[in-house]
Design a protein around this nucleic acid. Structure first.
Length: 320
DNA sequence: CATTCGTCCTGATAGC
DNA sequence: TGCTATCAGGACGAAT
């Protein structure tokens, strides 16, 4: 279940394989995986074939490959500014795999990109997706005044994929502003977990890391955001940063083999989760303090939320 | 306008 | 055994 660390692992894995190579052919094996490309498979392929991949960049869980189109007329000043990008979102189960031409199609192979030959590198970039919540599409790159995708890419100008322009920075982004986040958080009339999952407020956090961050910060998912003190907001943001950095160091989380990184190896961070999936197991923090408390699972936003009833008490009505 | 909810999907698993 | 029901959840557009 890809959240920010998994997507970043894919980005890092992908960049050395695809940067500088040209897309030579495109097979759309399941049009549902390009449903966000409004003009259809023909147009999708037409946009990509002949284009050279300049980079792999990310904003939140969106990943894109800025393209230099074949024969494109560049500005007179010689500055090379890509007009479009191949956008990817992994959704629930999406994978981007580099594969040699001879490797049999994966069961859920949806899209195949063939790349220009490069010494010692696989020919194909494959998009594999079981649940089809993810997908690929071509989007335009538009100027942005906020410094670009995440300070991670190397674009010649601050440009962002149009479809990701509404996505906030993630907690690991060097340009992430806590003050801006806290200001917006305080004026919302909603619960803390809802806010953490809102990619327009802070990006990269999904159901799993939301629960982990809340547990680390000892805060309840339903805590009204307009009552959050600065120190509490700082705590949960810092907790999110920590859990994401741990996951990144471990190469991404994997729970059910749906998520595999770009080289086909699963992450193993799931062993160190403290909240997610631990229904009826002891809260590790309480246990360390000599208190017996069993983690509770509740339905919230049509998703499971795991909390410790002792150290993450549900907010009572009224004052905080 | 801000916020919440329903929907898209497949396959593993539970229950009868 | 074989069927149906349930669950998993990111993001968007519709509904409130």
């Amino acid at each position: 279940m890809p959240e920010l660390p998994e997507v970043e692992v894919v980005r890092r894995g992908l960049v050395s394989w695809v940067r500088g190579r040209t897309i030579t052919s495109v097979d759309v094996l399941d049009p549902r995986s390009i449903r966000r490309h409004a003009l259809g498979a023909q147009d999708f392929a037409g946009n990509l074939e002949g284009a050279r991949v300049l980079d792999v960049v990310r904003r939140g869980k969106f990943l894109w490959l800025p393209l230099e189109e074949a024969g494109a007329v560049q500005p007179a000043d010689g500055e090379s500014r890509p007009a479009v990008a191949l956008m990817a979102h992994l959704g629930m189960s999406g994978q981007l795999l580099m594969q040699d031409a001879g490797v049999p199609d994966e069961k859920h192979l949806k899209i195949r990109l063939r790349l220009s030959p490069a010494e010692g590198m696989p020919e194909q970039l494959r998009f594999v997706d079981q649940r089809i919540f993810g997908g690929l599409f071509v989007t335009s790159l538009i100027p942005t005044s906020d410094g670009g995708p995440g300070g991670l890419g190397e674009l010649p100008a601050p440009v962002i994929a149009e479809e990701a322009a509404h996505i906030a920075r993630d907690p690991l982004d060097p340009h992430f502003s806590f003050e801006s986040f806290y200001r917006r958080l305080r004026i919302r009339k909603t619960g803390l977990k809802r806010a953490l999952l809102d990619q327009g407020l802070v990006s990269g956090i999904g159901n799993i890391y939301a629960d982990e961050a809340l547990w680390r910060a000892r805060l309840h998912y339903a805590r009204p955001t307009d009552t959050l003190r600065r120190a509490e907001a700082l705590r949960v943001l810092e907790a999110a940063r920590e859990v994401m950095l741990d996951a990144l160091a471990a190469g991404g989380t994997s729970f059910d083999s749906l998520y595999v990184n770009v080289n086909g190896a699963s992450g193993y961070f799931d062993r160190s989760l403290n909240a997610y999936g631990r229904e009826n197991q002891e809260c590790k923090r309480c246990a360390a303090a000599g208190i017996v408390s069993l983690m509770k699972r509740e339905q919230f936003m049509n998703r499971s939320s795991y909390t410790c009833p002792v150290c993450q008490p549900r907010p009572r009505n009224g004052r905080w």
